[in-house]
Design a protein around this nucleic acid. Structure first.
Lengths: 193, 193
DNA sequence: TATAACTATTGATTTAGATCAATGGTTTTT
DNA sequence: AAAAACCATTGATCTAAATCAATAGTTATA
């Protein structure tokens, strides 16, 4: 049930068996069916979710009702609206399941208890957020410096796993492009084989 | 010398006088003249820098030698290339001073010593990186959802301080626009007053 | 199995930002 | 104080992505 979570945790901060058992007490497993929401806009985000199995996405809807995907989260990733989680302000994002999912939720009181009781948990969260920060900075950087063609190519290379599990128009959305534009980019790339 | 640093630190995690003195031992003050580099591409980033005074920017150069500004850092902000700092890989960014600066550097061994000796330092860094993550996510979100006009307006509102201290073409660069395009946007906005 | 909903491709047109080019104003440097 | 470097604005043109529109293929559902 918590296999992947503790594998990832141990990679960042090694734990004893006792520590794992202690931490487990604060975790809440949750299953989510494809298309179900984990978080809806205007709700307060009450969790940090670790993905044991499946795939989720975080997105917003623009004025015309179009989806803008901010983040994909496959197995081994963590997803939340941290701003809402930390401030208890209503979220401006949706999170839903793109596949049937098995999640581990850490709710706010559990998060705070873990932080104060288990120093290694604080180290784990620090390293986890640092990694997410670095990944996002690279993404921002590539939006500025790379052409859409290059960005598509590097997305496919960096996340082949995600790329093969979501429809193309979601990849377009993640890259800030219209699906039709991405279709043309693919043709362009394949012509230059 | 360390006024602002400890003010910000205390806002996140209150410290005793003894703790402040202990932490101070690990800090390295540094002055930087306008236009000087703090970090150059291909160098390994050996510090996390807190800005006591002045203003810096983190940027890359594209194939045509154009600057792409990823981040401004005025007083009270922290700047580094965390990826390079953590992995000791060469950085792909430049950091330089836009004004004469007074900085506090925390080098790698100091950072590690502080993490292991002073639990509050780990909490401080965790909260600091979390804030930076949230800010960057909002920026990415606005690139996707907002028009350039809206993004310019909200930059001016969110960071009026920075906006008044840097030339317009750097704001354009931060927003991923050509200076000329920003010039037209400004005219458009002022016409709709 | 049939129907409906979703998905990807392609063509034609429009539009907004990039690029080319010139000017006048400001700041910095000598 | 003069010269040089930097900066912002504006006009004209070009280009690439968005938009409009139609079609065919795929997946999900009744």
């Amino acid at each position: 049930m918590y296999d992947l979570f503790f594998r990832q945790f141990n990679k960042k901060v090694p734990l004893t068996m006792e520590e794992q058992l202690e931490i487990t007490k604060f975790l809440t497993p949750k299953k989510l069916r494809k298309r179900q929401y984990l978080l809806q806009e205007a709700d307060v985000c009450k969790f940090v979710a670790f993905v044991e199995k499946g795939l989720l996405r975080q997105f917003t809807l623009d004025n015309n009702g179009n989806e803008r995907i901010l983040q994909f989260a496959p197995e081994g990733w963590t997803i939340s609206d941290l701003y809402s989680f930390l401030t208890a302000e209503p979220s401006s994002y949706h999170i839903d399941a793109l596949e049937d999912c098995e999640l581990i939720l850490i709710n706010k009181s559990a998060h705070e208890a873990l932080l104060s009781k288990i120093p290694k948990y604080e180290t784990y969260t620090r390293l986890q957020i640092t990694g997410a920060y670095i990944a996002m900075q690279r993404r921002l950087s590539s939006i500025f410096s790379a052409t859409p063609d290059e960005r598509y190519a590097s997305f496919m290379q960096l996340y082949p796993d995600i790329a093969n599990r979501v429809p193309q128009h979601m990849i377009a959305s993640y890259m800030g492009l219209q699906p039709k534009t991405l279709s043309r980019i693919r043709r362009r790339i394949s012509n230059n084989h």
